[in-house]
């Protein structure tokens, strides 16, 4: 038994693999709890904004509501429409859920608290978030239903459009950091959070994040008044739950990205006594919660965009503006000699 834990296979392969599995659980389990309580927070916050109480029956202050909802979805029957493409119909929600989870591998929660500290972290996040569209578009096609299909097409066009401006926002942040590594991006904000010098980019990023996650006011893919509920109309039970979890995990992910890129990640707002006693991961969570609150606030406040207005905003306003801002940022960095030196 003792020599089982010796030799290169243990120290070289098995132990690192086990550690990674433990880390993965340490990230995904709190994440799923956060997703559950995000749905609760959404209903509560919107309830308060609309002078209602929100869920208040299950458990104290309705705190067990998300688990009751989850249990209900778990016990329901999974219906696969007879005209659907069975394999793709099942793959789509699984894909959405997996993509929402794997992006967290590169997010730094605190100094050194990151599963994979890779050099191309930003590109990895961008790649994973651009893949999110596949779950939706496959679901829409495999359902073999016109509402689902229309929702999927809308969503594909919308997500591809807003990715372009997100790309330029990322470029302007990267110019100020000189690295694609997310931990470097956070440490580069020691002196000042990028939300202040790059304020217009911050605003564009938040709006694009709303569009990228198909949230109100850009929730046209699931516009219930026109498309019943869009791409997920044929889904039930756990398949639906996976879409739902994936969507909310994506919201948290985009908030996490906003925090890392613009709000200084795990850094306290001021590096002085009461603030820097609090551990970085708490600051990270607080900032993510703040950005998520903006998501919910926007949903309770704004009416849905019309589709042509959505496209106009993405292509004719955000794209030229963010391109111009990239040029401006580069120009300022060169002119004042502030260009970050390669580490």
């Amino acid at each position: 038994m003792a020599d089982l834990f010796q030799g290169v296979w243990w120290s070289g392969y098995a132990l690192p693999a086990l550690t990674v599995v433990v880390y993965i659980f340490a990230i995904t389990v709190p994440l799923l709890v956060a997703v559950a309580y995000l749905t609760y927070a959404e209903r509560k916050v919107i309830g308060w904004m609309q002078l209602r109480k929100g869920p208040n029956v299950v458990g104290p202050m309705g705190l067990f509501q998300p688990f009751a909802d989850g249990l209900k979805l778990f016990l329901k029957e999974t219906v696969i429409p007879s005209g659907a493409n069975r394999v793709l119909f099942i793959i789509a929600p699984v894909l959405t859920f997996i993509l929402a989870m794997i992006a967290w591998a590169v997010i730094p929660f605190d100094e050194g608290w990151v599963l994979a500290d890779i050099n191309v972290g930003v590109l990895y996040l961008f790649a994973v978030s651009s893949l999110g569209v596949y779950g939706i578009i496959i679901a829409g096609w495999a359902s073999n239903s016109k509402y689902a299909f229309l929702g999927a097409l809308r969503s594909a066009a919308q997500m591809v459009s807003y990715e372009v401006s997100i790309g330029f926002v990322l470029v302007s942040v990267l110019l100020c950091v000189g690295s694609l590594n997310l931990s470097h991006i956070v440490t580069a904000q020691q002196t000042i959070w990028f939300a202040i010098p790059l304020l217009p980019m911050f605003v564009i990023f938040i709006i694009s994040a709303l569009a990228e996650t198909n949230r109100a006011p850009f929730d046209l893919p699931e516009a219930e008044a026109e498309l019943v509920s869009g791409y997920n109309v044929e889904y039930s039970a756990m398949a639906f739950a996976l879409f739902f979890l994936g969507e909310y995990a994506n919201m948290i992910l985009m908030s996490g990205m906003t925090v890392v890129l613009f709000l200084g990640g795990w850094l306290p707002p001021l590096d002085i006594a009461p603030f820097n006693w609090i551990p970085g991961v708490v600051w990270f969570a607080l900032k993510v919660a703040f950005v998520l609150f903006i998501f919910l606030w926007v949903r309770a406040t704004f009416p849905r965009f019309r589709y042509d207005q959505l496209m106009r905003l993405g292509w004719k306003v955000f794209l030229p503006f963010s391109m111009a801002w990239v040029v401006l940022t580069a120009g300022v960095l060169i002119a004042f000699g502030w260009l970050p030196t390669p580490a």
């Binding site: 191309v120 961008f126 790649a127 651009s130 893949l131 096609w141 299909f149 591809v160 990715e163």
Partner: peptide, 24 residues
């Protein structure tokens, strides 16, 4: 790794989505 990420972003995230869009 840079080429890998760009391959995923450009081809999978944009080009193939538009393919799929048209083919569907």
């Amino acid at each position: 790794e840079f080429l890998a990420m760009i391959l995923v972003i450009v081809y999978v995230g944009a080009v193939a989505v538009l393919f799929l869009f048209v083919v569907m």
